[in-house]
């Protein structure tokens, strides 16, 4: 069973788009993180991207940097993330994508990574700093399965390169909405539209758009152009702002539901 494929097919039948939620695993601590993720799964999130914290997140803005630091205070490792996925898988059937820098995967062992991720219940991986040219060292070890390699496409990526990236990807493509790190403010919808048109001409894969999306209006706008909307820093900001609040989980629930309402097409 390919959960990603099923998910995008079902959404399409319902005239809906995917709400892809990113959170750093173990932020603010492992137990609360599990509660947050569970609540998101139960309140409309369609795809989970679970971030592996890294000491040197050079592609991330301050919000996700801080979430990474908080998780690292609890020694959250890729092993911890595998354990969390095993638990999350018991309560949900939505696709789970591991979101990581390459070094934690190397330290885990590139041979064991895919079999362990599949056994835990993950559906794919996005390795932020493993571009097209370097990814075969990881994917050449993979068995023929439904485990997806999600790749990034950027506004600076030329068309021919987009086509190459698309053919090396499966599950979906992640279009970075702007040249910047995660959490940068402001959405350039005409830029997204241009990139989407080029991408559609080179691939049939679903495309999810992320970086800098934070309001329900942003979600609605992007959902009208793409197959899914990725929200990361906005969730992390909520976690950070309400870190000591007993309402933390319910605040996340409310926000997830609000975003989800905005993905529906009519």
């Amino acid at each position: 069973m390919n959960r990603l494929k099923n998910s995008f097919e079902t959404l399409k039948q319902n005239n809906d788009k995917a709400l892809v939620g990113f959170v750093t695993a173990g932020d603010p601590d492992i137990e609360t993180s599990l509660k947050i993720v569970t609540a998101m799964c139960e309140n409309g999130m369609d795809i989970l991207e679970l971030g592996v914290p890294f000491s040197d997140p050079s592609a991330d803005g301050p919000v996700i940097q801080r979430s990474s630091s908080r998780a690292l205070k609890h020694d959250v490792s890729l092993k911890t993330v595998m354990d969390m996925i095993r638990k999350i898988r018991k309560i949900t059937s939505i696709p789970i994508i591991i979101f990581s820098y390459y070094n934690p995967i190397m330290a885990y062992g590139i041979e064991n990574f895919q079999p362990d991720a599949i056994a835990a219940g993950a559906d794919g991986v996005l390795v932020v700093d493993l571009p097209l040219e370097e990814s075969p060292e990881l994917t050449s070890l993979w068995n023929q399965t439904d485990f997806s390699l999600i790749n990034l496409v950027a506004p600076t990526t030329p068309k021919e390169r987009m086509a190459k990236i698309a053919s090396a990807s499966s599950g979906f493509l992640y279009l970075v909405s702007k040249t910047g790190v995660t959490g940068s403010d402001g959405l350039d919808t005409s830029e997204i539209e241009t990139q989407m048109n080029i991408l559609r001409s080179v691939t049939d894969l679903p495309v999810c758009v992320g970086f800098g999306i934070s309001t329900a209006e942003d979600v609605a706008t992007v959902a009208s152009m793409a197959d899914g909307v990725v929200i990361g820093s906005a969730f992390e900001r909520l976690i950070e702002e309400n870190i000591n609040s007993p309402e933390l989980v319910s605040i996340i629930v409310q926000q997830t539901a609000e975003y989800k309402a905005a993905t529906k097409q009519n």
Binding site: D129, E134, V153, T156, G180
Partner: peptide, 12 residues
Amino acid sequence: GGRYVAETLMPA
């Protein structure tokens, strides 16, 4: 060696 960077930097 190699180029282990996010796609945004690759074209540059």
